[in-house]
Design a binder for these strands. Structure first.
Length: 618
RNA sequence: GGGGCGGUAGCUCAAUUGGUUAGAGUACCGGACUGUCGAUCCGGUGGUUGCGGGUUCGAGUCCCGUCCGCCUCGCCA
């Protein structure tokens, strides 16, 4: 074949006169009879070829050229010359190649679709089934290049900071807490199974005990739970761990990474990141990953609401009134002041909010508008105005209301009211049009740390304690003694213990999370006990960890970044499948390879597995 | 597991209340054309309306079931 001398994005004015060879795909053809133009494409760009019987191409080859169609693969030789008319859309648009020799390397069937970004894209289902064509699109090539660059910046930064890149096993021990695991049957030991790792959490801690000091890995993780637009069952993490550090050293290292990453990927200089306690996030934003690009803060007005003669408030506030503040079952009234809402939040929208919060367990949303009265002063209107009227001045002052505002209320127990308000705040922000464009489209990049998470929370169904982050997260240093001293039966104390965990939140999205780990066997044992694991169960599941911790474990801490979400941010997409070369559907199918698939009976027999699904039914 | 949206030519879409032979653009095939660049012009092929039932004189359209895709709640230590 004619091996290329240049890529299809390379030739410039300075190459005019040179004899070159190009390889690539036919991107489009424009047949003028005697004269034929072909745009040839590779991942580097597009170059125009000209086939002219007066220009050195043989009559036989011209006939072959006339038969070229989109996505045929060709090799050509020819002479670079200046175009008669420049195409400013192409980087190579000043020149063209007058072809003297053509070899068709691969003739294509009529392709199911053409890989251009100009027309409306085919259905995603179809793009995934023919991924080899979809990935030819310039936008997808850009995605692959962006991911690649992210890998390189990541490896460079952590290498410079003394991290070792170490691979950990994919065939791993089942530790069935948290997410459902993918299982792999063992051939050697009938009836036993590996699991695919939800993350390399325990291996990286073991590596710290093993004296590796600093570890990093760009690793695949597997969680057999239902995906979402921004979630795949199989996804990639930038996984890290450091020894001989506490919280601040890790956070500093991570912040440095984020700063480097954004500088190199986007040119944006990330300012010092504020640290927001979990409690503040929940109080002001109703969520542990607040989007601080817009205000619309939530206000707890329980105290004021108690003075209002409104049944819904009174009923809510009666609930769990003897419980401590922030207790999930204590009744509260929360409000959001929406500047300009009186006009924009129509009755239809606010009625919709009631339906919306019902989905999260609340009874509804109460509404009041602040309008201009006849004397020009603020007047309460619609909704629950008549109940608030007697305490109007106090209410307006409390909420800081101005004419034109709408105030939305939810009254329920703390957990529900907080969740509803957090979700409602985001919905209202969208309805009001105050959510900025994504960072990749010129909007702000808004980073913050969320810290001081509770160590434990109660599972709603079982009533048992579960680790909020994971069971290897240490209490915050100043909480350690309180944790060791705590009576396991004392829920209020257990609930109050704060962990040494930390998340990085970007524009309301968690992009990284980590914690200082427990490096003391006694502390780890106490956590397992609180989580309801007997010493025997703990040993069965985590003996290797407990042993490791008992043979000289350095203090250590780490973090994991969601790599796919980082790429989504850099490309400005909200679809995770757009940043993965070979993604899966919501049911875990690979539409190109048709995985998962049935396997022959003998293959099942080899691994000692029998299907309970009758062959006829499948 | 629950809720919602969608599935019509290779692809993107249309088809009035249930009513004639299911159309258009594009791709593809044939033809014309020496400067185009999403070439243009002329002509043509192409349909199990996802699948299976049902209602009806008549179903792309209505009903039931099912499969697939997407969005979402639960779930995701």
């Amino acid at each position: 074949m004619l091996i290329r001398t240049h890529t299809c994005g390379q030739l410039r004015e300075t190459d005019i006169g040179a004899t070159v060879r190009l390889n690539g795909w036919v991107n489009s053809y424009r047949d003028h009879g005697r004269l034929l133009f072909i745009d040839v494409r590779d991942r580097f760009g597009v170059t125009q070829l000209v086939f002219d019987p007066d220009g050195g191409i043989s009559a036989e080859q011209k006939v072959v050229a006339d038969r070229l169609r989109n996505e045929d693969v060709v090799a050509i030789e020819g002479k670079v010359r200046r175009r008669e008319s420049v195409n400013p859309k192409l980087a190579t648009g000043v020149i063209e190649v007058l072809v003297t020799n053509l070899v068709v390397l691969s003739k294509t069937e009529n392709p199911p679709f053409l890989p251009d970004d100009l027309d409306k894209l085919p259905a995603e289902e179809f793009r995934m089934a023919h991924r080899y064509i979809d990935l030819r699109r310039p936008a997808m090539q850009k995605m692959l290049a962006t991911r690649h660059k992210l890998y390189q910046v990541t490896r460079r930064y952590f290498d410079e900071n003394g991290f070792l890149e170490i691979e950990t096993p994919i065939l791993y021990k089942s530790t069935p807490e948290g997410a459902r695991e993918f299982l792999v049957p063992s051939r050697h030991v009938p009836g036993t199974f590996y699991a695919l790792p939800q993350s390399p959490q325990l291996f990286k801690q073991i590596l710290m005990v093993a004296g590796c000091d600093r570890y990093m890995q760009i690793c695949r993780c597997f969680r057999d739970e239902d995906p979402r637009a921004d979630r795949q069952a199989e996804f990639t993490q930038i996984d890290l761990e450091m020894a001989f550090v506490r919280r601040d050293q890790v956070m500093e290292m991570m912040e440095g990474f984020v700063r480097r990453l954004w500088r190199e990927m986007t040119g944006f200089e990330v300012p010092p990141m504020r640290r927001m306690p979990f409690r503040e996030a929940m109080e002001d934003y109703g969520i542990d990953r607040p989007d601080t690009r817009y205000d619309l803060k939530i206000k707890d007005i329980s105290e004021f609401a108690a003075t209002v003669d409104f049944g819904v408030f009174k009923t809510a506030l009666e609930k769990g009134k003897d419980r401590p503040r922030f207790n999930s079952k204590r009744g509260v009234v929360k409000a959001i002041r929406v500047p300009g809402g009186a006009e924009k939040l129509t009755r239809k929208l606010t009625d919709g909010y009631t339906e919306f919060v019902k989905g999260f367990g609340a009874g509804g949303v109460a509404v009041v508008k602040v309008v201009k009265g006849e004397d020009g002063s603020p007047k309460l209107d619609t909704g629950i105005a008549k109940f608030l009227e007697p305490r109007k001045a106090e209410f307006l002052a409390l909420m800081g209301c101005e004419i034109g505002d709408t105030v939305l209320f939810v009254a329920d127990v703390y957990a529900i009211a907080t969740k509803c308000m957090g979700e409602l705040r985001q919905k209202v922000a969208r309805d009001m049009g105050v959510v900025p464009k994504p960072g990749a489209e010129g909007g702000p990049w808004n980073f913050l740390w969320v810290v001081d998470f509770p160590m434990f929370e109660k599972n709603k169904e079982t009533g048992k304690w579960v680790a909020m982050h994971h069971p290897f997260t240490s209490p915050r240093d100043d909480q350690m003694q309180a944790f060791l001293d705590a009576n396991e039966e004392d829920d209020d104390v257990i609930e109050s213990i704060v962990s040494a965990g930390y998340d990085i939140v970007l524009n309301g999205q968690e992009i990284a999370g980590g914690s200082v780990r427990i490096h003391d066997r006694a502390v780890q044992s106490k956590v397992f006990k609180l989580l309801g694991l007997t010493p025997e169960q703990a040993k069965e599941k985590f003996s290797f960890l407990l042993e490791a911790l008992s043979f000289g474990a350095p203090p250590h801490a780490g973090v994991a970044f969601g790599l796919d979400r980082l790429v989504m941010n850099f490309l400005g997409t909200d679809n995770i499948r757009d940043v993965i070369a070979f993604p899966k559907t919501l049911t875990g199918a690979d539409l190109m390879t048709k995985a998962p698939s049935h396997v022959p009976a003998n293959q099942l027999k080899d691994v000692h597995v029998a299907s309970i699904i009758p062959p006829a039914a499948t």
